[in-house]
């Protein structure tokens, strides 16, 4: 049975995650890069941006091109012909981000500037 008796769902929540309506800015270069990256993907594909725990500053950005998630809990942002989706649980961390793309040999690729981050890692993939 274990100490908690098989299910802890009767216990009070210790932490509630705040959900906000997400607004993000995508630069022109990022829009072109998104279109290019998704050019071979069908209309049902979307770009999911998320914040996972970990990295050297506490959270790590993740970007994935996936089939549009069926489950509820995602917010959609249209970028030209494409759609960016952000999970409700990441909404207060990712609200207000600026998604840019830098075409440089070193440190290039998608870049995220996040007004909610107190600190970020040199590699640009982790923030806290």
């Amino acid at each position: 049975m274990g100490l908690i008796g098989g299910s802890g769902l009767g216990l009070p929540m210790a932490v509630e995650v705040e959900i906000v309506e997400v607004s993000i800015e995508v630069t022109d270069t990022a829009k072109i890069a998104i279109e290019k990256s998704m050019s071979e993907d069908g209309e049902g594909s979307v770009l999911v941006i998320s914040a996972e725990s970990g990295g050297c500053s506490g959270y790590m950005y993740d970007m994935k091109i996936v089939d549009r998630p069926n489950e509820e809990g995602y917010q959609s942002i249209s970028v030209g012909e494409r759609t960016i989706m952000i999970h409700d649980r990441d909404s207060n961390l990712l609200n207000g981000i600026v998604l840019d793309y830098k075409d440089t040999l070193m440190g290039g690729g998608f870049q995220i500037t996040n007004p909610n981050a107190d600190r970020s890692c040199g590699c640009g993939q982790s923030f806290g």
């Binding site: 769902l9 929540m13 932490v15 998320s50 725990s53 506490g58 959270y59 649980r89 961390l93």
Partner: peptide, 18 residues
């Protein structure tokens, strides 16, 4: 715990006071 809660709750999990 906020960071853990955020990740777990995307998949239906949670952080609870025991």
């Amino acid at each position: 715990l906020s960071s853990i809660a955020r990740n777990l709750s995307k998949k239906g999990g949670s952080v609870r006071d025991a």
